[in-house]
Design a protein around this nucleic acid. Structure first.
Lengths: 147, 147
DNA sequence: TATTGTTATACTCTATAACTATA
DNA sequence: TATAGTTATAGAGTATAACAATA
């Protein structure tokens, strides 16, 4: 019985739900819509990505990514480039301006909420270590599914 | 310097982001849209709530709640009732059918993701206690803002 | 006058289906 | 035939502004 895990998950959900307004607020400040912010932050300026890979990252349909990238491209933050090996594929390149905006967005989004910032330093460290373990173990399980 | 809190927050965000598809999936199974699920789950069947209070809970505009409640009311899950004391206000009452659906939804949503369910029992307990402290302290601060 | 909820309007995100170009 | 991306279309969530009923 993992009632503790259930309660921990409920607490985590209420924490992130209380921070729900931040993404729209940060996006509005940059003159972007929330989805555009998530897309821009998901792109690595050093490593162009195909449209369909971005769709998988954002867990949404290709047709949706078309519209989001249209708007980011109009703003000069991203560019489409045809892939060399397969001309059906379009690679997404973050422009210099896009990289600057992205850096600001990521910095704002990673600002911890009061509930975490107010914890004693020792608790913050315990929490970080625990989450590292949890995420690492989950990644391992995904890579090598059990028998 | 709270770099640990920052990293913990980033890890929490990636955990909840990896669970991003669950709300739409659970909503679709119940034949509802994600926003309708959040609204229904936010209503306490034992304690009717004004439209504007629900808007505050969901951190969105009143005009938006009108549309969401329209659809929940058409489905027979919620009813509008005029408040006795102030006839401008409409109280939202969860129907018997709505309470059943709500219970199922809450149960499905509180199922912890693999990253948490896979942690050792001791870690789950530590995490739960830590989050209880964090959320409790934040609530206290909100109730009594410092000097 | 001020407030609660509704309506009108517009933009964004989302999906499905049909289409084009390429493989 | 199958795949990557686009277009067309539709439904839902979001906001602002104007409005009605009530306070």
């Amino acid at each position: 019985m993992s009632e503790n895990a259930r309660e921990a998950w409920r607490l985590l959900q209420s924490l992130t739900r209380s921070e729900r307004g931040r993404l729209p607020a940060i996006a509005a400040q940059a003159g972007l819509a929330p989805g555009q912010v998530l897309a821009l932050c998901s792109l690595d300026p050093a490593k162009p990505m195909a449209m369909s890979d971005l769709a998988a990252t954002l867990a949404c349909d290709n047709s949706n990514v078309t519209g989001i990238i249209d708007r980011l491209e109009q703003r000069g933050l991203v560019q489409r480039r045809p892939a060399e090996r397969d001309r059906r594929v379009k690679m997404l390149v973050v422009t210099a301006a896009g990289a600057r905006v992205r850096q600001d967005l990521r910095s704002a989004l990673s600002e911890p909420p009061a509930a975490l910032a107010g914890l004693p330093a020792a608790d913050q460290r315990v929490l970080r270590d625990l989450l590292r373990r949890a995420m690492g173990a989950a990644a391992s399980r995904a890579a090598a599914p059990g028998p």
